[in-house]
Nucleic acid binder design. Sequence first.
DNA 1: TTGTACGCGTTATCAG
DNA 2: CTGATAACGCGTACAA
Lengths: 347, 347
Amino acid sequence: MSADREVTIYDIAKYLNVSAATVSRGLKNNPMISKSTRRKIEDTAQLLGYQSNTFASSLRSRQTNTLGVLVPRLNSHFMSSAIAGMEDAANRHGYNLIIAQSLEDVEKEKRNAATMFNKRVDGLLISLSSNTQTIRHLEPFFKKKIPVVFFDRIHQHDESTAVGINNYEAAYNITKHLISQGCTKIMHLGGNVLRNVYQERLNGYQQALRDHHLPVKEKWHLTSHLSEQAGTDAARYILDLPVNKRPDAVFSANDTAAVYCMLALKDAGLRIPEDIAFAGFNNDPISRVIAPNLTTVEYPGESLGHTAATHLINHLKGISNLYNTNAITLRADLVIRDSSLKNKLQE
Amino acid sequence: MSADREVTIYDIAKYLNVSAATVSRGLKNNPMISKSTRRKIEDTAQLLGYQSNTFASSLRSRQTNTLGVLVPRLNSHFMSSAIAGMEDAANRHGYNLIIAQSLEDVEKEKRNAATMFNKRVDGLLISLSSNTQTIRHLEPFFKKKIPVVFFDRIHQHDESTAVGINNYEAAYNITKHLISQGCTKIMHLGGNVLRNVYQERLNGYQQALRDHHLPVKEKWHLTSHLSEQAGTDAARYILDLPVNKRPDAVFSANDTAAVYCMLALKDAGLRIPEDIAFAGFNNDPISRVIAPNLTTVEYPGESLGHTAATHLINHLKGISNLYNTNAITLRADLVIRDSSLKNKLQE
DNA sequence: TTGTACGCGTTATCAG
DNA sequence: CTGATAACGCGTACAA
């Protein structure tokens, strides 16, 4: 009576005088089962408080209905939005998410990938750590044909899909916008160019300068982790330049660095955008709170996560073919705000 | 040769002419196994590219080394920090996180709880959705003695631990601070009092008023979702009051509402803190970007998540007893910033 | 449409 | 210290 055993399909079978196989079928909407017995099975399952045992099921069927999510950090606005989008998509299709963060450390990324592999995730969603050089640690997935979808910080790979935005174009356009506002000495706060997103933003920025016959100076390209501190440091760097050598605009590869740079420069008495205009990237909440509001690039985290997960799931269900879709590019529109409206304010 | 079968402990056993049981033991650091055979087993596992099958293991051992995390929303600074803390703790102890969000919807919370239960998580970390009335949907966990740890938005329960801060005290202190700055007409932007955090913040606020012989007016207590829109709406509400009936301070139960209220009031020409002082809650990044910086309460998301997960894991490992620790309260210090320094600025 | 019988890979139990 | 064997709960050929 007080047996602590779980309710299994055998209990249901015994209760109904049918075989366990029938119960198993009835529970899984197997078409070749009569309406009436299915109904009885479902009712009994309810009655007995049956809970399917996912391990036993996974062990037998070799699939887990679980997706692995591997990200550099969980606690950024962009990433938590992306994960929220993934969770939504996964939930809709009966998948679960198992999540780990690499904290920008390849070694941890490797360990986490191994764990995910071990846990037999049906597919992997990954955004690479900043210092990841090769994706050799994903080989086990490729070998076993476990689909991998890269998002945000992606890597070219024939048998995987990459979901992101056109970073080059966005950076090009926002730089062009600064130029159209009359800026000619535009600085760039960039991230580690090992990651495509930062490399492409740098490329877009530089090409825009070239196309408008502006000099591309190494001194105006700072590389950092784009943290709050990095933003403050960049401000210090600018303030230490002779006044006539200072940039008249800054394009930062993320909003955090842009905002903290702005704060420090404002503290030092510089006017934004009159003395120095600003543009960021991500459309982080802080970009709408800083005064003046930061011009930035809308980075659609939630829909990006949703798209990546949905694509992966469709592939798992055989609806789409991952290998035919090497890249999905989402729109990333400019969000023009006061921090870059130099001319307008001067008129 | 091209067999797609996985490498199992039987393959290792056969290779070494030992039994599968021995291999199983060797792989799990079972003490009663000789050093030499363990070494051979480990080497062979490596050689053959063995990967343990977690389902088979879970099926047999009835534990998953997986923790369920159920939150209202993934994409808030506080929540993603808390989850980052949990992930860190879990990872350290060989546990994995499976995460779902209720999107502030009880029904989804129920479904998610059922899924977690089904997936046989070893323990559950949960922060309740805003409209959750009872925790009956957690009964299956309680009945099966699966430990549940509430965090942030908690619920009193004899057999569970709750991890949070002293919201009453924090609210009391920050209100007292506003009073000490000379504010006498203090408004409160609160959340749904179904959730302890908002009820306690309201209580703390009201008690502080009473203790300083200030009136507690219903008109100065607005309840909302504390969204950006709610903040803007609150500003409208204030501006619509006759000038002499307006509050001279606002204490918001979160930073988002506070900040968007500030932005709208500043737009309308009010000076902060001279005309109206502000205090928030959470120490969200936006509180450090808004001008003037928002006085707020440090809500230690990461350490809270870390603490909750560690406590749960210790319990699972038998190191601590969940039932002896009904509550863990973390420090939540005030962060005094310019938005509330009324007197100082007037001097 | 349903039942039979077996195996998925591991771990627990008991015996040696 | 090690081996043999029986579960764990479910899915699925194959047979009926």
